[in-house]
């Protein structure tokens, strides 16, 4: 019964979020919820601040106004110690992997274990090999990050992110710049990680096909606000005009092909007038 209650409460709640970077308003009253134990994907055009959203959830940035709750704790108000405690229950996969370059693959995965636990060396070894096996890179443990391809680096980073058995993983553009095979591997890994470990996954991406494929929930954001949100079916069925354009990848629609400006005709005519002078 208790478990039901926990399963019902959303893992992340964002309410009325406003965030500015300099004069540019990145988020203007953004609200969304991330259900527990599911894969939720935040999609939107490039430059809508999707990565920024992950950093706000992770407490690396503070909102200008509005609130973010993770696991019932308001992120921006936590003391450093409480925030770090929260982050131990949170894994984050960076777009580039962000592996520590002065350590090999094994040490990278062992890093959070060594930093946060006093486990004996043998246990750490077993845990690391387990995590590496899960991402299929057990044999690559002695390579240095520089020797890894982009996809492999991301898989090592995933092994590192799950090293402390978190409740939630944040994926920042996990599909960007991958070949189809590697893409398939990552997609499988994300889904498998989610189902076997029963954790909450938050993806940020603009790869519509893969995202719709593996997500339970989808949030579409643009211009600092949520355009559409819900389960994949809901979004597909009742999508707004904007969402349809985005999901189908149509070049013109509510988001115009042309950068807004004067009419083409006027512009040409003006050039002619000045030419006659």
């Amino acid at each position: 019964m208790n478990d039901d209650r926990v399963a019902d409460t959303p893992h992340v709640v964002v309410e009325d979020l406003v965030f500015r970077r300099g004069r540019k308003v990145v988020f203007d009253g953004l609200s969304l919820t991330v259900p527990r134990g599911r894969v939720t994907t935040v999609m939107g055009p490039s430059g809508t601040g999707k990565t920024t959203l992950l950093r706000l959830i992770g407490g690396q940035l503070r909102p200008d106004s509005g609130r973010i709750w993770v696991d019932g704790e308001e992120v921006a108000r936590l003391s450093t110690r409480r925030l770090y405690a929260l982050r131990k229950r949170m894994g984050m996969l960076f777009q580039t992997g962000a592996l520590l370059t002065d350590m090999n693959v094994f040490e990278n995965v062992a890093f959070p274990l060594r930093e946060h636990t006093d486990l004996p060396e043998e246990l750490i070894r077993n845990l690391v090999l387990m995590k590496l096996e899960a991402v299929g890179l057990r044999a690559a443990r002695d390579l240095s990050p520089a020797e890894l391809s982009g996809g492999m680096a991301r898989r090592v980073a995933l092994a590192r992110a799950i090293a402390l058995d978190p409740d939630m993983i944040l994926y920042d553009e996990p599909f960007a710049g991958l070949d189809p095979i590697t893409m398939g591997q990552i997609v499988t890994l994300i889904r498998r990680t989610n189902s076997t470990l029963g954790l909450t996954s938050v993806l940020v991406t603009h790869d519509v096909v893969e995202a719709m494929d593996i997500s339970d929930h989808v949030v579409l954001i643009a211009e600092g606000r949520v355009m559409d949100a819900g389960t994949v079916e809901q979004v597909r069925a009742g999508a707004s005009e904007w969402s349809e354009q985005f999901l189908d990848g149509r070049p013109d629609g509510p988001v115009p092909f042309h950068y807004p400006g004067d009419s083409y005709r006027d512009d040409l005519m003006r050039g002619r007038e000045s030419g006659n002078d």
Binding site: Q60, Y84, R87, M90, A98, L100, E115, R160
Partner: peptide, 13 residues
């Protein structure tokens, strides 16, 4: 390469 950021997210100062 976001290593510092990654450390912060792993709760390492």
């Amino acid at each position: 390469t976001e290593q510092l950021s990654a450390m912060e997210m792993m709760a390492v100062d």
